[in-house]
């Protein structure tokens, strides 16, 4: 990880405006991604972690989805939000590639793995099919798929789940992107395969120096992989810090609650039941005007119910959005 910022997200808001009402999924998030950094994005289902990341490449249905005015995503000095779909296409797969959550559904079942791997490469580099297949073979080999050459001609249904996720990773690496968005790539896999995929991702980071945005609700996985962690809640980043700092010294009540809900491996621990955060996340049908966590927070005071805290720095590089910290 270097100090060079390769992606800078400023005040990104995404909303879905449908006839029967709007959903404000992402509400003004800002963060920087450094070269070679692995950024963990954690939060519960529906907190906007996937939407906010897919919005970087406009990989959401638009309409009804809309990136609200005032949002900016800077990559190499260009604002991705302002680009036309044709210009943005040059970034998709080439600069920023995505590894999807479910390898069972993310592949087209009626096209060979090889053909799916090379189409982005051929599009971006304008090379021949043969050269592209050679590169695909090399990457499949690298991601640990045996007999890569023959497997390129296979269909997704002939691959096991773990192998498909490896192929998905190989596919994302085809164009040597500088950023990989990994959208819970291990959630759909069993634990053994999960750890193999995690090892593979660590190797890839070492070999390619790629920056990774790792979206997950699995705090354990993020702890083992990420350099920095953004905790998201109700479409906002509520806490952001270095991974060790965040796990050992959580400041936001929500982060504390999340970490407190993890089972302990300590046998002497007399804690009988896992703690949980009471209540439910807010329904995001209105713009956020007060602290979205106030209703579930034990430390909430009057000020929390009348205004929304913004993310601000406490100790070095540790950002929190809370009035009481």
């Amino acid at each position: 990880m270097t100090n060079k910022i390769i992606l800078s997200v400023k005040d990104l808001s995404v909303a879905f405006h449908k006839r029967d009402g709007s959903t404000y999924a992402v509400n003004g998030i800002s963060y920087d991604l450094h070269e070679g950094e692995t950024l963990g994005i954690v939060g519960e289902s529906g907190c906007g972690k996937t939407v906010s990341s897919m919005a970087l490449l406009k990989l959401i249905s638009m309409p009804p989805g809309k990136i609200e005015t005032g949002s900016a995503i800077y990559k190499d000095g260009k604002d991705l939000v302002a680009l036309s779909s044709k210009e943005l296409r040059l970034y998709r797969g080439r600069e920023i590639a995505v590894i999807f959550q479910d390898p069972m559904t993310a592949f087209n079942q009626v096209m060979t793995i090889g053909d799916q791997m090379i189409e982005g490469y051929v599009e971006h580099f304008g090379c021949t099919r043969k050269d592209a297949l050679k590169e695909a073979e090399r990457l499949m080999d690298l991601t640990g798929i045996p007999a890569a050459k023959t497997r390129l001609k296979d269909y997704p249904s002939q691959f096991s789940g773990g192998m498909r996720q490896r192929a998905m990773i190989a596919m994302a690496l085809m164009c040597k992107p500088s950023i990989l968005i990994a959208d819970e790539p291990t959630t759909a896999l069993d634990v053994t395969i999960q750890s193999q995929i995690l090892d593979l991702m660590k190797d890839i980071r070492k070999e390619f120096g790629t920056s990774i945005m790792w979206i997950s609700h699995d705090l354990g996985v993020v702890a083992g992989l990420a350099d920095t962690v953004n905790v998201m809640y109700a479409g906002m980043i509520v806490e952001s810090a270095d991974v060790d700092e965040l796990y050992y010294n959580p400041l936001h009540p929500y982060t504390k609650g999340l970490l407190g809900s993890l089972p302990s491996t300590d046998i002497d621990n007399d804690q009988k039941r896992l703690k949980s955060i009471g209540g439910y996340p807010p329904i995001l049908s209105k713009k956020i005007e007060k602290c979205p966590f106030a209703d579930r927070c034990s430390e909430a005071t009057d000020i929390c119910r009348h205004g929304c805290p913004s993310l601000s720095e406490r100790t070095g590089q540790h950002y929190v959005a809370c009035f009481n910290v």
């Binding site: 990989l59 995505v98 087209n108 009626v110 189409e119 599009e123």
Partner: peptide
């Protein structure tokens, strides 16, 4: 999902529709 995968690779929308969706 695979339509979004195809789009994420940066291929033309026409190719997404014809090669992936239509088939």
């Amino acid at each position: 999902d695979y339509i979004w995968t195809a789009r994420s690779k940066g291929i033309k929308e026409r190719a997404v529709l014809i090669k992936h969706a239509l088939h």
